Amino acid sequence: MRLPFPRLRPRPRPGPAVPAPPDAPVMEFRGVALTYPGPPPVEALKPCELTVMRGEFVTIVGPSGSGKSTFLNVAGLLDSPTSGRYLLDGIDTAGLPDRDRTALRGRRIGFVFQSFHLLPHRSALENVALALLYTSVPRAERLARARAALEQVGLGHRETAVPGRLSGGERQRVAIARALVGRPSLLLCDEPTGNLDSANAASVLALLDELHAAGMTVMVITHDPGVAARGRRTLTVHDGRLREEVAA
């Protein structure tokens, strides 16, 4: 028996999405920095410049405590920088109210995490469709888009399976489908292979390669040099400083 979607109070719907200029970078950091207040203050991300164009595959590496998580939080509009400007799809996010930042994040960024974050008693289809629950998309279209996203990641035949019946690699593919269903500009992945064995990790990385080849802008944050090597550009974070690795 299929469980119904949860009866939750809907949030206010955001205004209509503003189309991104076709030549605008997906991400642009202009002197972006983040300092946590003290005492003493901690300069978690030092002023940095970064431009990510549409269709790029960028990897971010660095040791524990280097500032990768801070970078992720700023890039994902989870934290606001204390200085500088962050443009997402040409939209200046500085000074946006929390409600507008949340709406922009939901429309423009698809998140993939190490721990999947799937609801255990919902099917793969329902887990993916729930990403659209607080949008203006009608229920029938939510389900249709969820099916299409599962097909895109090679799991159309597993739409009725709950997470406990899926392998680790399949669960991560469902999580990727959930990130894609909103048709984001940026797929932001935080250690997407961290909980997978080598075979499932290779399968997920191959899927990210396919998505990139199809035109998706992909950013992967990782501590694994092998994963980092999949990117067409690699950036390092060390002591809060962001630098680009230059190939020999």
Score class of each variant (00 low, 15 high):
M1R: 12
M1H: 11
P6N: 06
P10V: 00
R13Y: 01
R13I: 11
V18Q: 12
D23Y: 03
M27Q: 14
F29R: 11
G31D: 04
G31N: 07
V32G: 05
A33M: 05
L34D: 08
L34Q: 08
P41F: 03
V42F: 14
A44P: 01
A44Q: 02
P47H: 05
G55A: 07
G55Q: 00
E56C: 10
I60T: 10
P63K: 08
G65N: 00
K68N: 09
L72S: 01
G76M: 04
S83H: 12
G95T: 05
R99N: 13
A103K: 01
G106E: 03
G110P: 06
Q114T: 11
H117Y: 14
H117D: 13
P120R: 03
H121Q: 15
E126W: 01
S136C: 03
V137C: 11
R142I: 04
A148P: 00
V153C: 10
G156V: 06
H157F: 10
G164N: 02
L166R: 02
S167K: 00
S167N: 07
G169F: 05
L187K: 08
A201S: 15
A201K: 01
A202F: 07
A202R: 14
S203T: 13
S203P: 06
E210R: 15
H212S: 03
G215P: 01
V220E: 05
T222Y: 10
G226Y: 06
V227F: 07
A228V: 04
L235Q: 08
D239E: 14
R241P: 01
E244R: 14
